[in-house]
Nucleic acid binder design. Structure first.
Lengths: 245, 245
DNA sequence: GTCATTTTTTGACGATCCGTCAATACTGTC
DNA sequence: GACAGTATTGACGGATCGTCAAAAAATGAC
């Protein structure tokens, strides 16, 4: 009985603590979105969760770790989506398009993520976080990379893609990743897009990704398969918001 | 005589002030590189230029404006390089490759720029700067865009490039810009690149750009023209460090 | 050269916010 | 209810931003 009581008490405490961590992150995320990086403030977070500042510091070594934790949350979700996408039926390039659809769904449902990621990537912030937290984020990145590189490998093996001599699957993925990362960065931070005549940058990103894979000669080419329709459909079928997170 | 003396005195003052502004930016740039964003500090800048903090605030409304000014310096240089590149001899795609070479040279000689740009793009920093300063930066961005879009236009006119129905020159440029922006961001901030097997991201970026333009079917294709050798050569001929800045 | 006036420079100061830690409150055990 | 161990608190020291009244320097009229 004693042990049992102790255990339940322990686990209630544990649950309390765990839920408080989630609470802190929820509040931090909202404040970050509402007031920007410079408006994110430990005292305000403390006031809002109705715990003192000292308690927050039992969960996170410093302000920067909260940011890294936010980024990690999002990256773990993305990784799960990518893995699910990579399991799709069909030839490798179609599976790659499925990953593309997952990436689109991710930014649509986690639009805050790019703000957070951008902030975290600023070197002096990154350097203030503990190696443990960095490790987790880097692990997500590596595994996202590995998941997509595997698809390219499959394509090389089954002959639907022939890479030029001296070039790796990793390079193709680097291209896709860059295109995605750059388009998101520009979309979220450039104030001149609309007046320049780019009304739908997300659609342009998708188009350019297909052009690039066509450039690699990855079959089936976009002239032989309607990736556009496919991605729209798969986004609704597999990556609606209620299907994850 | 009086007027003349007054005028010279005035312009000496003016020159003094102008040179001090450059001095502030030089010191700020160095401190930013050495100590990161969080290490950039008004008191330290003041100490190093041997003027008081108050004097710095006569040049820049706040810390963020210094960052924007640094970014603007770099962007103006890049614009000049792009314009020079766009004037190159040859068919449009070769001129586009020249711009690519200029972009490469830019990051090689202004490696600090991406750090600055990244910091500036964080929304809450951007919002603290004055409309005037923002205007200048946005103007640079627009003009870079316009310069490169013009090349694509020329290609469409001379028939070396045929854009798919419903797609603009702006979309192609958005693709190139995204690829460039994303590759730079990743290269400068990812800690997992080397272990993933990307030993030379700059070379991979160049390769992917050519693949993408091949995907657009922009003649001459990279199978018909050695863009790699051309870009290496043009970088030495036109964009050595001593030829600008 | 002197002195009143204008401009420039200064650095002490108030305000903000981070992260710490000694003091306090809480929890479970005997 | 006393006690040991743990959790929580918020006042505090330290760092930095941006301001502003006062000091210093420059100007220009005589």
């Amino acid at each position: 009985m004693t042990a049992s009581t102790a255990t339940t008490a322990e686990s209630r405490k544990q649950r309390e603590i765990r839920s408080r961590e989630a609470q802190i992150l929820d509040v931090a995320r909202r404040q970050l979105l509402e007031r920007g990086y410079l408006g994110l403030n430990m005292d305000r977070i403390a006031a809002e969760i109705e715990y003192s500042k000292g308690t927050i510091y039992q969960h996170f070594r410093n302000k920067e770790e909260i940011l890294v934790a936010l980024a990690t949350q999002a990256l773990e979700t993305r990784l799960a989506m990518f893995r699910s996408a990579a399991d799709a039926e069909g030839p490798p390039r179609v599976r790659m398009a499925t990953v593309g659809a997952a990436a689109e769904a991710f930014v649509e449902h986690f639009s805050h993520h790019f703000l957070v990621e951008q902030v975290v990537r600023v070197s002096s912030i990154w350097e203030k976080t503990s190696p443990d937290r960095r490790e987790v984020m880097e692990g997500c990145e590596r595994q996202c990379m590995a998941t997509t590189v595997a698809i390219v490998h499959d394509a090389v093996v089954d002959g639907s893609l022939r890479l030029p001599d001296g070039h790796d699957p990793e390079e193709l993925i680097f291209g896709m990743w860059s295109l995605y990362q750059g388009a998101q960065t520009i979309t979220h931070t450039s104030h001149t897009l609309a007046e320049i005549g780019l009304s739908n940058p997300l659609a342009s990103l998708r188009f350019n990704q297909n052009v690039m894979l066509d450039g690699y000669g990855w079959a089936p080419l976009s002239s032989d398969f309607d990736y556009h329709a496919y991605m729209d459909r798969i986004k609704l079928d597999r990556f609606r918001h209620d299907q994850f997170a």
